[in-house]
Amino acid sequence: MDKFILQTENVSYAYEEGEGLALKNVSLGFRAGEMTAVLGHNGSGKSTLAKLLNGLYIPTEGKVTVCGMDTSDDTHTWDIRRNAGMVFQNPDNQLVASIVRDDVGFGLENIGVPSEEMPARIEKALNAVGMLQFIDRAPHMLSGGQKQRIAIAGILAMQPRALILDEATAMLDPKGRQDVFDIVQRLNREQGITVVWITHFMEEAARCGRVIVMHEGCCVMDGTPEQVFTRAEEMRAMRLDVPPMVALGDLLRARGLPVSREAMDVDAMAREVLKCQ
């Protein structure tokens, strides 16, 4: 067994032959239990990376493995997608059934789980995202954040080892975004599910254990949020912002206030500032 749940080795990908590469020679590994944010501007290749990680796309060059299985080997396709579940950006376009219960059960039906086991797994998955009371509701009656939680439950029911979220919060309101992020973070901490969180919200990236920055199809930065966000100038050159509190910290330090680089959210920054008095 590989120590990486998801791994890409020298992966390049072109949407069409002869066209430019959407991803250039990317080698990354995602360890079990890790929560990684992937940042990048539009067209940086972050969505392409996501779709390569569960075999929706097969690399033009290089190799992607999921739990040790090569995605280009189509005997493993369904095992790979079961283990590396994917949540997409638009909450409406990924729910299949007109009742929550049936939607969460959709993946289970596909992978051939016996009918007797399904209700318990569906309820457990819905409970994990705090949506059990909506089990008999129709998805179109729910808010965007609730729909995304249903989509996550649909993946969770399949008991995956990794969860890939491709800008899952981009279309949500701030409340829904917060809820979805909190749930995913809790799943990562409590159930040890490996998370790849693709986003363009810096505040979310700052709360992940590891941050990867993509630019023009290459992986240009990889490290803890502290390591990545201290390179503020480089980030801005790639038209990416740093989280507001990191930017504030930089300004304060430039003025001689010794605030820690680890203060990335408002509360931590407030404590740092109070300490300086």
Partner: peptide
Amino acid sequence: RAGDLAMAMEARCYHGGEGRTRLRV
């Protein structure tokens, strides 16, 4: 939407009616 949904269904292991079990007995 149809394109998105097809991709989401594939990502959730949909591969037609074969080998499929049913939630409702």
